[in-house]
Amino acid sequence: MSDKNPFILDRPTGRSLRARDAIACVFVAVLMLLVVKGQSIRSEGEKMDSGIERAVVLAVGHPAGWAADRIGLGDDVDRLTASLSPDDELSGPGGFDETAATGSSSKAVAPVTQDAFDPAALGEKPARLDKLNTLVATGDSLVQPLDVELARRLAPDGVKTLRDARLGTGISKSDLLDWGRLAVSQVRKQTPDAVVFFLGANEGFPFEAAGGKVVGCCGPAWAAQYATRARQMMQTYRQDADARVYWLLLPMPRDPDRQTIARAVNAAIIAAAQPYRAQVRVIDMAAVFTPGGRYRASMPVGGRATIVREPDGIHLNKAGSKVAADIVIGRLKSDFESLR
């Protein structure tokens, strides 16, 4: 670094003009910009957050936009300079403005309704139901002894728990029992305020898809079929938003082949519940009992290592069912005033 001062404070060498020339020069530039960019100023102002800056920009932008609209130079300039823009040209089909117009076309997506959102997940107070009178605890053998635990613990609150375990059944096993029809029947008979559903010990059977094609477990095509059936049941159980559904994901079984099935079933349930998040609570038992997707027979419960699985490596034992019941009741309490 030199001691010699390299600093130059030099007045520019060019000619000097008058202050009014400076003002005139700036105002000529401003006038030209208002004429050709008036619409842009208005639209930029409209995009700004409310506040003083937005008000100032719009105070200029509205009259400038009005004038620019009438003069019409802005569009020509935009066309001439369009090639300089780094943004992609987005003039083709598929815009949001066409969504309503093409709603019935084959390419249209199904609209997402507000039922797809759990209000609690959006930081809003969920719409709570007044009283839990009737609860149906149903599924296959997995729902036992959870159903008993729920019935026992909810009885003091006046909740009538109907236990309806269908052993050996599965959603992919409809030759034994059609769960779609059973769900309709359960709702028609009991009109439950809540349904706790835990099933999956007997899944993995192939589906017969359209055209007689057989879809084997456990790829995306199988999961899609499973999710479609599960969604149909969820729609039945939620009774047009009048009831709440608590659908339990499967804790990983010990057997690796069964784990493959359980992963597909869980993925299908999550996908199936998407449109009904406001009423269908997907409770992740896999995260509780088998975190990281690794089977374990025991886990800490109340600070002590406790066996929570049956020796078959599939079902929850009594202690495990108590853990599951705690979680389900916690979710019930957040949905029903009478349980608080």
Binding site: A24, C25, V28, A29, M32, V77, L84, S85, D87
Partner: peptide, 21 residues
């Protein structure tokens, strides 16, 4: 001065055209 102002406006128009969304 008017030509200076006009030149500045032209450059601003061209430069703003290169601004991304």
């Amino acid at each position: 001065p008017a030509a200076l102002g006009a030149s500045m406006a032209v450059v601003i128009v061209l430069v703003t055209a290169t601004i991304s969304s």
